[in-house]
Simulated assay, not measured.
Amino acid sequence: MSYKLDELAGEAGVAPRTVRYYVQRGLLPAPEFRGKDTSYGREHLARLRAIKALQQAHLPLEEIQARLAGASLPEIERLASGAPPRAALAGCPGAEVACPPPARAGGERWERIPIADGVELHVRGDAPERSRRIALDIASRHSTLAPRGSR
């Protein structure tokens, strides 16, 4: 399917200006044609939806860009649905949360590990592996805890 700028923005629930900004920042690939006949495709829509889902997880645009970089369309669609990327889970046996991407130069990086609705653990990117395992252990156990009032 092909979209004009206004159609794409409407489908994704963003302003056309936001689409242009994301293209400029490299979060979205450039559209297929320029000028009056500019068109956007399925990947553009999936990326916009993934960006929104990752923003709702409170990730900054730099982190979102890193997660989308080199991702396949099925992976982007998975992110758009709010699910963690499969590749990110591969290094975390039994984890339901994404492992952090490789460290990047420039700035401190923190990993967010959701525990429950509105609750998350934060682990610094350069934390010892033992600390990271403790956080993942807590995250994996939260789903087995009995709901409040039923103990």
Score class of each variant (00 low, 15 high):
43 E>P: 01
16 P>H: 05
63 E>A: 15
72 S>L: 06
7 E>Y: 04
43 E>V: 00
63 E>Q: 13
39 S>I: 12
16 P>C: 10
58 H>Q: 15
42 R>Q: 14
118 G>T: 14
143 S>L: 09
107 G>Y: 05
124 R>S: 06
22 Y>S: 03
73 L>Q: 09
101 P>L: 15
5 L>R: 14
95 A>W: 10
80 A>C: 10
81 S>K: 04
66 A>I: 01
8 L>I: 02
6 D>E: 13
11 E>T: 02
76 I>E: 01
28 L>W: 10
114 P>H: 09
148 R>C: 03
128 P>M: 04
8 L>F: 03
137 D>Q: 06
110 W>N: 05
149 G>I: 07
146 A>Y: 02
113 I>F: 08
20 R>W: 13
53 A>E: 04
99 C>N: 09
118 G>C: 10
79 L>A: 02
42 R>N: 06
136 L>R: 14
69 A>T: 04
11 E>L: 06
1 M>D: 07
36 K>N: 08
105 A>H: 09
67 R>E: 00
8 L>M: 09
145 L>N: 03
86 R>K: 11
90 A>K: 13
44 H>M: 06
44 H>D: 03
41 G>R: 04
56 Q>E: 13
140 S>G: 07
70 G>Q: 12
113 I>Q: 02
24 Q>P: 02
136 L>F: 15
24 Q>G: 04
150 S>H: 14
42 R>G: 03
121 L>Q: 12
17 R>H: 11
30 A>V: 04
136 L>E: 07
33 F>C: 05
60 P>W: 04
145 L>Y: 10
109 R>K: 15
113 I>E: 07
